[in-house]
Simulated assay, not measured.
Amino acid sequence: MTSSDVPDNRWSDLGRPPLNATALRRALLRPGALWTSLDVVRTTGSTNTDLVRRAAELPEGAVLVAEEQSAARGRLDRQWSAPARSGLFFSVLLRPGPEVPIERWGWLPLLTGVAVATGLSRSAGVDTALKWPNDLLVRVPKDSDKLRPGEAPFEDERKAGGILAERADDGAVVIGIGLNVSLSAEELPVPTAGSLALAGAVSTDRDTLLRAVLRSLEHWYGEWRAAGGDPAASRLQEAYAAGCSTLGRSVRAELPGDTSLTGEAVAVDGDGRLVLATAQGVQPVGAGDIVHLRPA
């Protein structure tokens, strides 16, 4: 893990300048705020792994940002990578208890999705949809030269980011966020990926975006915690449903144990589970991969 606070190569890539750690701290670390420390490193394996390892020595509100990750992980330990400084790759350390019962902590990834989408809407002018449980989707315009007569000008939603929540040994929760910001079409790891730049963001300034996302996360976490983790009282459940691209679609839920369910996603229940209306009746899904089978 290498610090990037020293400015020796700050303008080595004018198209992708490094984050300004000093300015970020000045904007986000203040008395009474959730965020208590913010470190930016040039490269590391995984910010989640680093914070989980150090959780016992850190207070709630620690933020670790990497300009590049060499061993980034998503759900189910899936590996992914992105060019240095092309996105936001960061993790935060939270301690919801004792105010929030542990059975409600499963809402944290969904809360983070709402916070990221809200922050990006304000700072980047991009509507970010949520795919249950942890993906961030954007719409990318098609090449106008390749449109067929009558064809819609936007492609299906593409994944521009993801969220990963992990428990540390001391009981803290570390939430990692990976977001593609300036990736070009040629840099996308897979054709189904996207970025804020490709979605027409009005700003790809990563300092601005990170400040907006962390402020939004502080707001939603504070509301949820003040309500004892109640997703209805904090309006989190309502906000998630409003921004969830999965609801109203026919989906296939690929479940642990090589089983699957197919049906219409009709709700997100009070436990954060996706509720499917299937041929066998209504069934909640608490874990699994969701495949969208038709456009909303």
Rank of each mutant, 00 (worst) to 15 (best):
R235V: 05
D269V: 06
P149G: 04
V275Y: 03
L111K: 12
G74L: 11
V285R: 08
G61P: 06
G272N: 13
E151D: 12
E99M: 01
S260P: 05
V251W: 02
L196G: 07
A33C: 10
P18T: 07
A233M: 04
E166D: 11
F90R: 11
P109T: 05
V40D: 01
D143I: 02
L183D: 09
A212R: 11
L108V: 14
N48M: 07
A267R: 02
L110F: 08
S144F: 14
I163S: 02
R294Y: 10
V6W: 00
D143N: 13
L261Y: 08
S3C: 12
E99C: 08
Y221P: 06
A267K: 00
E238G: 04
L293Y: 00
D156F: 11
R294W: 07
F154S: 06
W132F: 05
L29Q: 09
G272T: 06
V63H: 00
S144R: 15
A277H: 10
R225W: 12
V282L: 07
Y221Q: 14
F89I: 03
T49C: 09
K131P: 10
F90E: 02
K131R: 13
G150M: 13
V140A: 06
L136T: 00
D258G: 05
E151P: 07
G113E: 07
Q280K: 10
F90A: 13
R16W: 01
K142R: 15
G45L: 07
E67R: 02
L19A: 10
K159T: 10
A239K: 03
L179S: 12
L110V: 13
W107M: 03
E157C: 11
D258H: 12
P133T: 13
T47R: 09
S91I: 01
I102D: 14
T246A: 01
V138L: 10
V140M: 07
P96F: 10
L137D: 13
G272C: 08
V65K: 05
V41Y: 01
A84Q: 13
V251C: 02
E254Q: 07
S46D: 04
A165E: 12
M1F: 08
G194W: 10
S234G: 13
G200F: 04
S3N: 08
L28P: 12
L188Y: 05
V140R: 07
A212H: 04
A193K: 12
D13V: 03
D145Y: 08
A172S: 15
N134G: 07
G272S: 08
A72G: 15
T43P: 00
A232V: 15
S184T: 15
R53N: 01
P191R: 10
P149I: 11
D169R: 14
R211E: 14
N20D: 15
P231D: 14
A71N: 12
F89G: 10
G113I: 08
A84V: 14
L247Y: 01
G286L: 05
S234T: 03
R30W: 02
G113P: 02
D50A: 13
S91C: 06
R273S: 06
P256K: 11
S144K: 14
N48Y: 13
S81T: 15
A239F: 02
E151Y: 08
E218V: 11
L93G: 10
